[in-house]
Simulated assay, not measured.
Amino acid sequence: MVALTAFHALRSGDLRTIRLADIRSGRLYLSTRVIPLAEPVRVRIQAWLSERERRWPHSANPYLFISRRTAVCVEPVGVAWVTQRLGLTAQAIREDRILDELHATGGDIRRICDLFGLGIAGAARYGSALEHPDLAYYK
């Protein structure tokens, strides 16, 4: 989960509802976009799938991330489970990743839209945040 959030800035809802069938050919197919997965993310997903199979070999749960509670049903994990596993909110990691990409690209709003599925207005809000004095370390 950390790799998906740190590399691709996924939201908590995205993490919770990724189905096993949504990952194929090195891509993550979300309802709104297709994300080519970074190699480190693919490696970690494969490790998780191996662990998942070891822990719950007979689970019929179609979601990528399952817990001891959801392994015996077909429901996604909850928001609290995701936050607990990440150690902070997915939104906090997402915001940091977006700001980092904006800094690295010199404020390229279009790239942020394409990479993270943001609209122009949302990406522009992140872009304007780079000028905030508390983010001076990005300069």
Rank of each mutant, 00 (worst) to 15 (best):
Q46V: 05
A47Q: 15
W48Q: 11
W48R: 05
L49C: 14
L49I: 07
S50E: 09
S50M: 07
E51R: 09
R52P: 08
R52I: 09
R52L: 06
E53G: 08
E53A: 15
E53C: 10
R55F: 02
R55N: 11
R55Q: 13
P57A: 14
H58P: 00
S59G: 08
A60W: 00
N61E: 02
N61A: 08
N61I: 06
N61C: 06
P62A: 15
Y63M: 08
L64E: 14
F65I: 14
I66V: 12
S67I: 12
S67C: 13
S67E: 05
R68N: 11
R68D: 13
T70S: 14
T70Q: 09
T70N: 05
T70K: 05
A71V: 02
V72R: 15
V72M: 07
C73N: 15
C73A: 12
C73H: 10
V74M: 09
E75A: 11
E75C: 08
P76A: 03
V77F: 00
V77D: 07
V79K: 03
A80F: 01
A80W: 00
A80M: 04
W81R: 14
V82I: 07
V82N: 00
V82R: 00
R85C: 05
G87W: 05
G87M: 12
L88T: 12
T89I: 03
T89H: 05
T89E: 06
A90R: 04
A90M: 02
A92Q: 13
A92D: 11
I93M: 05
R94K: 04
D96M: 11
D96R: 15
R97V: 14
R97A: 14
I98W: 00
L99P: 13
L99G: 14
L99N: 09
D100K: 12
D100V: 02
E101F: 06
L102Y: 04
A104F: 08
A104C: 10
A104Q: 14
A104P: 02
T105R: 13
T105L: 12
G106T: 11
D108Y: 09
I109V: 15
R110Q: 13
R110S: 10
R110Y: 07
I112C: 10
I112R: 06
C113W: 01
C113H: 01
D114Y: 00
D114A: 15
D114V: 14
D114W: 00
L115F: 02
L115V: 11
F116R: 07
F116A: 09
F116H: 08
F116V: 10
F116G: 12
G117C: 07
L118M: 10
L118N: 10
I120T: 04
I120C: 02
G122S: 15
A123I: 06
A123P: 03
A123D: 03
A123F: 02
A123V: 09
A124P: 00
A124M: 01
R125G: 07
R125M: 02
Y126V: 11
Y126M: 08
Y126G: 09
G127I: 10
G127M: 04
